[in-house]
Simulated scan of single mutants.
Amino acid sequence: MNISYQKPSPASVNISCEAHGIYPQPRLVLYEGATKHSRSTVSDVTEEAVETEEGFSIYLQALVDDRTLKQQETIFECVLFIPQTEYQLL
């Protein structure tokens, strides 16, 4: 699983995460916050899953306006879930 970011403009940040070769079809959830206990779900995301011979490849992307970020450091965390299981990958 990979998570990355880019600054497409001085006023925004693009957060991306992806995972490959997973079965059954997973879900990705993106969180933001200053600490793990104060994190919240990023709701405006684009998620896509593609099935291949090796399993599913899943992609998530969010464009975040810098004005919505906290004054202090903001931590982004991408979590992979496999529905109907207890499996999670941070």
Rank of each mutant, 00 (worst) to 15 (best):
H20E: 14
H20T: 11
H20N: 13
H20G: 13
G21W: 07
G21E: 09
G21D: 06
G21M: 00
I22A: 01
Y23I: 10
Y23A: 11
Y23S: 08
Y23P: 00
P24A: 06
Q25V: 08
P26W: 03
P26T: 03
P26M: 04
L28P: 01
L28Y: 02
L28V: 06
V29I: 13
V29E: 01
V29Q: 04
V29L: 09
L30F: 07
L30P: 00
L30R: 00
Y31W: 04
E32I: 09
E32L: 09
G33D: 04
G33I: 03
A34R: 05
A34P: 00
A34V: 09
A34T: 12
A34D: 09
T35R: 04
T35Q: 01
T35I: 03
K36I: 15
K36H: 12
K36D: 14
K36W: 15
H37A: 15
H37E: 15
H37P: 00
H37D: 15
H37I: 12
H37L: 15
S38Q: 05
S38M: 06
S38H: 04
S38R: 04
R39E: 11
R39C: 11
S40A: 10
S40G: 10
S40C: 08
S40D: 12
T41G: 08
T41R: 07
V42I: 03
V42M: 04
V42F: 01
S43Y: 11
S43E: 14
S43F: 05
D44F: 14
D44R: 14
V45K: 07
E47K: 08
E48L: 12
E48D: 14
E48Q: 11
E48A: 12
E48M: 15
E48C: 08
A49F: 05
A49N: 05
A49V: 13
A49K: 03
A49D: 01
A49L: 12
V50S: 10
V50M: 10
E51L: 11
E51K: 01
E51T: 08
T52F: 09
T52A: 12
E53S: 11
E53P: 08
E54I: 12
E54L: 10
E54C: 06
G55T: 02
G55C: 02
S57N: 12
S57R: 11
S57E: 11
S57G: 08
I58E: 02
I58S: 00
I58V: 06
Y59V: 09
L60H: 02
L60N: 03
L60K: 02
Q61F: 08
Q61T: 14
Q61K: 12
Q61S: 14
Q61L: 13
A62C: 07
A62V: 07
A62K: 02
A62D: 00
A62L: 07
V64H: 00
V64S: 01
V64C: 06
V64Q: 06
D65N: 04
D66H: 09
D66G: 09
D66E: 14
D66A: 11
D66C: 13
D66I: 09
D66F: 11
R67H: 00
R67S: 08
R67F: 08
R67P: 02
T68E: 03
L69C: 06
L69E: 06
K70G: 13
K70Q: 15
Q71R: 12
Q71I: 14
Q71C: 13
Q71H: 05
Q72M: 14
Q72G: 12
Q72C: 15
E73P: 07
E73C: 15
E73S: 13
E73H: 13
T74M: 10
T74H: 07
I75Q: 03
